[in-house]
C-alpha cells in the first residue's frame, strides 16, 4: 500500500475523494456528510464540497494587503526625538540603522520579518491561486507544502509592529530621548492581517482537484 502510494505520488491517480463519492468533508474536523448537509454535525462549522467564492476572497484580501503595504514602506514607522532632534525611520531605514550599529543578526531578523516574508507571501499566495486554474509547474505535494509554510509564517511578520509598541512604551525619557510610533505601523499591521486572511481563505483542496478534474 505504502510503496504503491509512493510510486504514484503526484501523478494523476484514482484517489477517492469525498466529492467524488458524492459526500462532503468538513475542513475543520474531518467528519464526512451527505452532500446535502450545510453544517457539520460534529463541529458545527459551515461546510461545502468546494466553496465557489474561495478564490475570490483570496484575491480580494491579497489586493487589500498589497495596497496597504505601500504606505507602510513610504511613511515613518518610528519617530525618534533625541535631545530635541527629530528623526524618522521607515521599515527599511530601521533595518539599515541596525546594520550600521553592527547588529547584523537583528537587522536580518527584522528584514526577513518585514520585507522578505510579506513580499514572499504576496507572491506565494498569488501563485497558489493562479496555479489551481492552469497547469502547475510544481506538483501537488510541493504546493501543499508552500501553502502550509505560508499559513505558518504569516503571523511572524507582526514582529516590527510589536517592536514599535515596546520602544514607544519604554523610551519616554522626556529630555534625553522619546520614541513615538509612526503611521506606517498601522498600515503594516493591516497588511499582515489582510494577507493572513487571504491565506486563510484559500481552500487547499483546490490544489488537488486539478489531478482528478477530467472525469467529474
Amino acid at each position: 500500500m505504502q510503496t504503491d502510494d509512493l510510486e504514484n505520488a503526484g501523478r494523476t491517480q484514482e484517489v477517492l475523494t469525498a466529492r467524488r463519492a458524492g459526500l462532503t468533508g468538513c475542513r475543520n474536523c474531518g467528519r464526512v456528510h451527505d452532500c446535502a448537509a450545510q453544517v457539520c454535525a460534529r463541529c458545527g462549522s459551515r461546510i461545502a464540497s468546494r466553496d465557489p467564492h474561495s478564490l475570490q476572497r483570496v484575491w480580494a484580501w491579497l489586493a487589500a494587503g498589497i495596497i496597504v503595504y505601500i504606505p507602510a514602506n513610504i511613511y515613518p514607522m518610528l519617530v525618534t526625538t533625541t535631545f530635541g532632534k527629530t528623526s524618522q525611520n521607515s521599515i527599511v531605514g530601521g533595518v539599515i540603522e541596525l546594520f550600521h550599529h553592527g547588529a547584523y543578526v537583528v537587522a536580518l531578523i527584522v528584514f526577513v520579518a518585514s520585507v522578505v516574508i510579506p513580499i514572499g507571501k504576496f507572491l506565494a499566495i498569488a501563485y497558489l491561486a493562479v496555479s489551481v486554474r492552469s497547469a502547475a509547474v510544481i506538483r501537488g505535494h510541493g504546493r501543499q507544502k508552500l501553502y502550509e509554510v505560508v499559513e505558518f509564517i504569516g503571523r511572524w511578520s507582526m514582529i516590527d509592529v510589536f517592536v514599535v509598541a515596546i520602544l514607544s512604551a519604554l523610551v519616554q525619557l522626556d529630555f534625553a530621548a522619546t520614541v513615538n510610533p509612526g503611521i506606517a505601523a498601522a498600515s503594516f499591521a493591516l497588511s499582515v492581517a489582510f494577507t493572513m486572511l487571504s491565506a486563510h481563505s484559500f481552500d487547499p483542496r483546490l490544489i488537488w482537484d486539478a489531478y482528478e478534474a477530467d472525469d467529474i
Binding site: 475523494t17 459526500l23 468533508g25 464526512v32 501543499q144 483542496r205 488537488w208
Partner: peptide
C-alpha cells in the same frame, strides 16, 4: 460515519 475526509485534500 465510518469515514474521514482529509481537511487538506479531501481524500477519504
Amino acid at each position: 460515519e465510518t469515514l474521514i475526509a482529509c481537511p487538506a485534500c479531501d481524500a477519504l
